[in-house]
Measured scan of single mutants.
Amino acid sequence: HMTFVALYDYVASGETDLSFKKGERLQIVNNTEGDWWLAHSLTTGRTGYIPSNYVAPSD
Rank of each mutant, 00 (worst) to 15 (best):
W37R: 02
H1M: 13
M2S: 13
G48P: 00
G34W: 09
S19I: 04
G14R: 15
W37E: 01
P57Q: 10
N30R: 08
Y54A: 14
V29E: 08
T43F: 07
P57H: 11
W37C: 04
M2D: 12
R46D: 09
G23D: 05
R25Q: 15
S19D: 07
L7Q: 05
T3F: 13
F20M: 07
Y8Q: 10
V5G: 01
K21E: 09
E24R: 00
S58W: 15
T32Y: 09
Y8K: 10
T32N: 11
D9H: 04
H40L: 15
D17N: 08
G48S: 01
G45P: 00
T32H: 10
I28G: 03
L26A: 00
V5C: 04
E15P: 13
Y8L: 08
A56H: 08
Y8C: 07
I50H: 00
L18F: 09
T16Q: 13
R25P: 08
I50M: 02
L42E: 08
V55R: 02
L26S: 00
L42M: 10
Y8R: 11
Y10R: 05
V29W: 12
T47D: 07
I28H: 01
D9Y: 03
N30I: 09
L38T: 03
F4H: 06
S58G: 10
N30L: 10
N31K: 13
M2I: 13
G34L: 11
R25G: 05
A12R: 05
D35M: 13
E24P: 00
T44Q: 05
H40Y: 13
E33I: 10
D9L: 01
Q27D: 08
S19Q: 05
M2Y: 12
A39W: 01
S41Q: 06
M2Q: 09
G48I: 01
T44D: 05
A6E: 00
K21Y: 08
A56W: 09
T3N: 08
H1A: 14
S58A: 15
V29Q: 08
L38P: 02
K21Q: 09
S58E: 15
E33N: 15
L18P: 05
G14Y: 11
P57E: 11
G45C: 07
V11L: 11
D9I: 01
L7G: 02
D17S: 09
W36G: 03
N31V: 13
R25A: 09
G45D: 07
T44N: 05
F4C: 07
Y54F: 13
S41D: 04
V5M: 07
E15R: 07
L26D: 00
G14I: 10
T47Y: 11
A56I: 14
E33F: 10
Y8W: 15
E33S: 15
A6I: 03
S58I: 15
Y54W: 07
G45M: 06
G48Q: 01
G14H: 11
L42R: 04
Y49T: 05
G48Y: 03
V55L: 08
M2N: 12
D9V: 02
T3I: 15
F20Q: 00
S41T: 02
G48F: 04
H40N: 07
F4P: 00
I28D: 00
P57D: 07
K22T: 08
A12K: 05
S58P: 10
F4N: 01
Y54K: 06
D17Y: 14
H1S: 14
L38S: 02
S58R: 04
D9P: 04
T43C: 09
D59M: 12
T47E: 09
A12S: 11
S13K: 15
Y49L: 11
K21D: 07
G45K: 06
V11P: 05
T3Q: 09
H1F: 15
T47C: 08
I28M: 06
N53H: 15
G34Q: 14
K21S: 12
S41W: 00
T32R: 11
E33Y: 12
D17I: 08
P57G: 07
L7P: 02
Y10A: 01
W37N: 02
N30C: 08
S13M: 13
S52H: 08
P51F: 04
A12W: 02
S52C: 07
S19V: 04
I50Q: 00
N31A: 14
Q27C: 07
L38A: 03
V5A: 04
F20T: 02
H40S: 10
T47W: 12
D17A: 09
T3W: 15
D35Q: 14
P51I: 03
L7I: 09
T43P: 03
L18M: 15
D17F: 15
N30D: 15
L18G: 02
G48K: 01
D35A: 13
G48E: 01
T16N: 14
A12V: 04
N53A: 15
Q27A: 12
L42I: 11
Y8V: 07
T16D: 15
T47Q: 09
S13F: 11
N30P: 06
T44R: 02
E33D: 14
F20E: 00
N53K: 13
H40T: 15
A6R: 00
L26Q: 00
K22L: 05
R25E: 13
A39F: 02
S13D: 09
Q27Y: 15
L18A: 05
Y8S: 07
T44H: 03
W36E: 04
Y49H: 05
E24T: 02
G45I: 01
S19Y: 04
Y49D: 02
T47V: 12
K22N: 04
D9R: 01
L42F: 08
S58K: 07
S13R: 12
T44Y: 03
A6H: 00
N30V: 11
S19P: 06
D35G: 11
S41L: 03
E24V: 01
Y54E: 02
R25D: 05
F20H: 01
Y54I: 06
G23F: 05
L18T: 04
Y8G: 04
S19R: 03
R46K: 14
M2H: 12
S41N: 09
V5Q: 06
T44A: 03
N31T: 14
S13T: 15
Y49E: 04
A39V: 13
V11M: 11
Y8N: 06
R25W: 14
N31E: 09
M2K: 13
F20R: 00
V29K: 09
V5L: 08
K22I: 07
R46N: 11
A6Y: 00
V5W: 06
Y54S: 13
D59K: 04
L18Q: 03
N31D: 11
T43A: 11
